[in-house]
Each structure stands twice: as structure tokens, then as C-alpha cells.
């Protein structure tokens, strides 16, 4: 890929396989299979795909909640796929933070908000309680909560508030990058906008890079600079947000886009859902598919004959 040195996070041929059972019963699940992409500093990279396609696993592997099966990952030029040392754990946790999907599940019900948000500071050696408290209050203000909320337990908050607490927890260590794992999919629509706008503001204020994992295409479109589409553990298309929505190339992307409801009752009535069946849509028996740059900044996973067809479509 071009401009390699510009990437803050670079993932090359990442594989994450899970196995269960042994011998005859051994079952291998290729949750992430040969995924490569790069994220530029201060950009928002969206990762979309249906449930179970490996988006979350990719995110969790990057922050090393899982050990990758194979592949390379670089953050700011430093290898983060190697064996887990104390040093690497520290480097990762200092630079990358994660926001989780479920606002109820992701806050410890036995800890107060101050303990939850301040934990990142405390384990980084900040001993002074008043200083921690001051930083926590400052962060809570930023996400729209009040100082008084710090002494409360998570169950007293609404879903949107909890998600903002999750954001505060991630932001307080001042990371360079945030992995947002479906941060709004558990919230109702009005609150989604609130949380997304908050993320956007914080991103601009702190110059953050965001890897945004979601299955809701409208949210991703609103929020992301570039978008990667995943299907069955593979990235099938990467493009700038506008390009992807204006001229999707891969049949799976088309299928995804055709599933978005339209706010126009006249066309919505006649909207056609495009099916995607990899067996029918691709013939990879002769030609093997690879990731090819069809147009500038627009990568598609395709075979040479498909490439020709795509180029024709783009009018190149």
C-alpha cells in the first residue's frame, strides 16, 4: 500500500484463529483471516460488517486481548504483534484505549465512577488521591457529567451516561488511539447521536485516531474518513467513506448498502434488497483473489477478471 510511513497503526496479514477440541473433534474457526489495513494519524477508520464477521476480534487482537495467530501489527512503527512483555503491555495500554459495546456490562457494578475512571491513572502510579480526583472530575465534565456523579455506582446511570463514563475511562490516560467497539449499537437513536458527537468533539480536541467498529452503516458513514468492509473474517473492500457509498464495488458492500432504510417513503417502498452469496457471485476456482487498488485509495478483494469488470464500472 502507498504512504506506508504515514500510518499510525498498520496491520499486515493478521490472522486470528480459534480452535476447540482436539484430535478428530478439532474445530478451527478463522475469526480473522489475512486482514491488512492501515490507519492514519487523526483519522477515523470505520470497520463494518455483519455480526460475527470478525470486526470485534480484529479490534481485540490489536490491543492484544487475544494473541494473534500470525501476521504483523505496527503502532507508530513499533512491532506490537510480538511476544507479550511487560514493556509491550505498558506501551500498548498507554497508547491505545478501548471503548466497549455494552454500557451495562463494561462498567464494574461494584466500583464507583471515580474508581472506574480513575483506575487508569492509579495503576500508572498516580498516588495522590486529590490529583486523581481532580483529573477524574475534569474528565467527567468533558463528557457532560458532573463532579457529583463520581461517587455513584454504575447502576444509577442511564445507558448513554454509562457509555460516556466508558469514554471518560478510555480518554483519561490520554491515548493516541481509541478502538471503539460498537460504542453506540446498544443505545437508542437519540442517544447515539449524542455519544457520536461527543466522540467527534473529543477526537478533534485531543487529536485522536479512532478505529470505529460498527454494524450500523449510517453511523459509520457519518463518522468515518475511511471505511473497511469485512466479510467472514476477511476485508473485502477499503475506501474513503464517500467513495464507498457512491460507488461500492464488491457485491457484499452493495448488499450491505442496499439494506439501509431510506428516509424517503416513495423510494423506500420500492427499495430492493441485494443478496450476497459468495458461491454465486464469485468464481475463484481458476483465479485466486487478492486485494487490489482499483482506484486511488479504493481497495477491493477480487480476482483479475473481476478487477476488469470493476474498472469498467468506475469508467477507468
Amino acid at each position: 500500500m502507498a504512504e506506508e510511513s504515514n500510518y499510525i497503526l498498520e496491520v499486515k496479514h493478521l490472522c486470528q484463529h480459534f480452535s476447540s477440541g482436539r484430535g478428530k473433534n478439532k474445530l478451527l474457526v478463522k475469526a480473522v483471516d489475512d486482514v491488512s489495513f492501515g490507519v492514519r494519524p487523526a483519522e477515523t477508520f470505520g470497520l463494518v460488517g455483519e455480526s460475527g464477521c470478525g470486526k470485534t476480534t480484529t479490534g481485540r487482537t490489536i490491543i492484544r486481548l487475544y494473541n494473534p495467530t500470525s501476521g504483523e501489527m505496527y503502532f507508530n512503527g513499533r512491532d506490537i504483534a510480538g511476544p507479550m512483555t511487560k514493556d509491550l503491555r505498558r506501551y500498548l495500554t498507554d497508547n491505545i484505549a478501548m471503548i466497549f459495546q455494552d454500557p451495562i456490562e463494561s462498567l464494574n457494578p461494584r466500583m464507583t465512577i471515580e474508581e472506574i475512571v480513575g483506575e487508569g491513572l492509579r495503576i500508572r502510579g498516580m498516588k495522590d488521591k486529590d490529583e486523581v480526583r481532580a483529573r477524574v472530575h475534569e474528565m467527567l465534565e468533558k463528557v457532560g457529567l458532573t463532579e457529583e456523579h463520581a461517587t455513584r455506582y454504575p447502576h444509577e446511570f442511564s445507558g448513554g451516561q454509562r457509555q460516556r463514563i466508558g469514554i471518560a475511562r478510555a480518554m483519561i490516560i490520554k491515548p493516541k488511539m481509541i478502538i471503539a467497539d460498537e460504542p453506540v449499537s446498544a443505545l437508542d437513536v437519540s442517544i447515539q447521536a449524542q455519544v457520536i458527537n461527543l466522540l467527534n468533539d473529543l477526537k478533534e480536541e485531543m487529536g485522536l485516531t479512532i478505529l470505529f467498529i460498527a454494524h450500523n452503516l449510517s453511523v459509520v458513514k457519518y463518522f468515518s474518513d475511511r471505511i473497511g468492509v469485512m466479510y467472514y473474517g476477511r476485508l473485502v473492500e477499503i475506501a474513503r467513506g464517500d467513495d464507498l457509498y457512491r460507488c461500492p464495488l464488491h457485491p457484499y458492500t452493495k448488499a450491505l448498502l442496499s439494506a439501509i432504510p431510506e428516509p424517503n417513503p416513495i423510494t423506500e417502498r420500492t427499495r430492493k434488497r441485494i443478496d450476497y452469496d459468495p458461491e454465486r457471485d464469485h468464481d475463484y476456482s481458476v483465479e485466486k483473489p487478492t486485494m487490489v487498488e482499483v482506484a486511488p485509495e479504493h481497495f477491493v478483494y477480487c480476482s483479475p477478471s473481476e478487477l476488469e469488470q470493476y474498472q469498467k464500472q468506475l469508467g477507468l
Binding site: 484505549a97 478501548m98 466497549f100 455494552d102 462498567l107 464494574n108 483506575e119 487508569g120
Partner: peptide, 13 residues
Amino acid sequence: REYVLAARTLGVP
């Protein structure tokens, strides 16, 4: 649980 994962991503020993 996600909050345990969250703590791990913060580097809690």
C-alpha cells in the same frame, strides 16, 4: 465480562 476486558486494556495487573 467486558469490564474485566476493559480493565485489562487499561493495563491492570
